[in-house]
């Protein structure tokens, strides 16, 4: 793909954003998920900020007919069907996130610090992804 290497840039910004936000700290994430404990609502602001920024850029990009590099723009609004698969997968994901306090982006960002937790979590996550593709088909 033309200019594929340029996607390094949003990757870097994403990684910095995860680290700055606190999403890479499992203790912080568990603090957010622990409604019955010393609840720390900070991470709700991560989703708020991210949705705000993405929504703005999603509006702006549709002033153009095409993306800057290549390909086609997806619709401004998403279409999708509700399937049992969605809910089963999201539930499994929720158990994993609640157990470890780490989701896929923060796991990768933590690889940058060579943390033992990330070095265990990421290969296990890749195995989980490959199992999903083998058993359930490539895409939901």
């Amino acid at each position: 793909m033309r200019g594929a290497a340029l996607l390094f840039l949003p990757g870097v910004v994403f990684g910095v954003g995860l680290a700055v936000s606190g999403m890479t700290d499992p203790g912080k994430v568990i603090g957010f998920l622990d409604l019955a404990g010393e609840w720390d609502p900070s991470l709700a602001f991560v989703m708020g900020g991210a949705v705000l920024a993405f929504t703005l850029l999603n509006q702006v990009v549709h002033r153009r007919a095409k993306p800057l590099l290549e390909g086609e723009l997806p619709g401004r609004r998403a279409k999708g069907e509700l399937t049992p698969r969605l809910f089963i997968g999201a539930a499994l994901f929720g158990v994993g996130w609640g157990l470890g306090g780490i989701c896929p982006g923060p796991a990768l960002a933590n690889l940058g610090a060579l943390r033992l937790e990330a070095l265990v979590f990421v290969p296990a996550m890749l195995v989980g992804m490959l199992i999903a593709q083998r058993v359930f088909g490539a895409d939901a």
Partner: peptide, 9 residues
């Protein structure tokens, strides 16, 4: 946790 996160996602 990693296995469940990857599988579930």
């Amino acid at each position: 946790a990693g296995l469940l996160v990857g599988l579930g996602a």
